[in-house]
Amino acid sequence: MPDFDYTASARRTIALERDAVDSLLTRLEGHFDTACATLIQCPGRIVVTGMGKSGHIGRKIAATLASTGSPAFFVHPGEASHGDMGMITAQDVVIALSNSGNTAEVVTLLPLIKRLGIPLISITGNPDSTLARAAVANLHTGVEQEACPLNLAPTSSTTTALVMGDALAIALLEARGFSAEDFAFSHPGGSLGRRLLLLVDDIMHSGEQMPLVSPETPLRDALLEMTRKGLGLTGVTDGRGALAGIFTDGDLRRTLDQEIDIREARIEQVMTPRCKTVRRGVLAAEALKVMEDSKISGLFVVDESGLPVGALNMHDLLRAGVV
């Protein structure tokens, strides 16, 4: 079909779905508040169910709720009729999706939900349907026209249902005071989780891996220590073991520019005193900010007494996924 205008088709689809989403703004009064209040007061879990395309949308809504502070899971209505109703308890709330509001597999569950005595929230395209009438709150997501030119394939209607589910999840998130740290605990494997949960203690080099020398150490020996430990730096400790300074690859370049004899110089003559450090137990993201703000590529981790307990550089943060 070389003459078909694909872009025009896409514009039509996007416009229809945009208009369908816009129509939701006029349907929030009353029922949406009731739905949110019911969900936030739920002592158990939010159980989401739906058949076919509504089921696919329901799975995503359940996943969004669960990752934003509202414990939720999806139950297939067909499986619920064959044993999975046992997953639903008297402490739960059910969200049921059906564009028609009369999907047989979902409607079959209504007597069982009623027998458990738990609230039902429906997301339907028909506010006069069986499912809508049985719910304590019905969220009307009906559309005048599907994006499908045959007006058959669920397109605009699934989009509005998904948006309504997102609206529920975000309203609950804000009401709960759900924070970025809370989100990170739900996503420990993601980049945000690594940034917000990883401590310097988890990635620093400690013990024998720490490059440390005393102030009177010859510069050439300090360079050997830097080479052995491979961090591009070495710490210089005073008589009580506290960090008196640091010497880095950058300091070496500056030392060479000053034409200092590296065979005769002692490390205390060329080190950088009062170096940047971070305390043990801080987030790795905080160490990254110190490095970025100070334009350095490595630093030491100290304890409450100022004694060095570890060292890390930008490569460690990169490997840990913090950068």
Rank of each mutant, 00 (worst) to 15 (best):
T89R: 12
F73T: 00
L120T: 03
C42M: 12
L39H: 05
E79L: 07
K53G: 09
H205V: 11
L192Q: 11
L16C: 14
A153M: 09
I296E: 07
V213C: 13
V270C: 07
G177T: 08
D316N: 13
G250S: 06
L288D: 04
T89P: 08
L139W: 08
T7D: 06
L139P: 03
G189N: 06
G117E: 07
V200F: 09
A161H: 02
R11C: 03
T272G: 09
K229G: 07
T7P: 00
E174F: 04
P154V: 09
P127N: 07
L233M: 15
R59I: 11
S70Y: 07
M226G: 13
A15F: 01
A8L: 11
H56I: 15
E304L: 05
V93Y: 05
G58P: 03
A153F: 08
V200W: 09
L192K: 03
V213Y: 04
D22L: 15
M51R: 10
I14R: 04
P71T: 07
V270F: 05
E208V: 13
I40P: 00
S156L: 05
G78W: 09
R194A: 06
A137Q: 12
V106M: 08
I296A: 05
G30R: 05
P211N: 12
A104P: 02
D293P: 00
T158H: 04
G241W: 14
R279S: 11
H82N: 10
E286K: 12
V302N: 05
T49M: 15
D257A: 15
S157G: 06
E146G: 05
A80D: 14
L65H: 01
V94I: 15
D238W: 10
G193H: 07
T155P: 03
E268M: 11
L112R: 12
S23E: 15
A161V: 01
P218Y: 13
M51A: 15
D182P: 05
T155I: 02
K53M: 09
L231C: 04
V323T: 13
G190Y: 11
E216R: 06
M291R: 03
Q269E: 15
L317M: 11
Q269P: 00
T26I: 09
A265W: 09
G193A: 04
G245S: 07
M271T: 12
R279N: 06
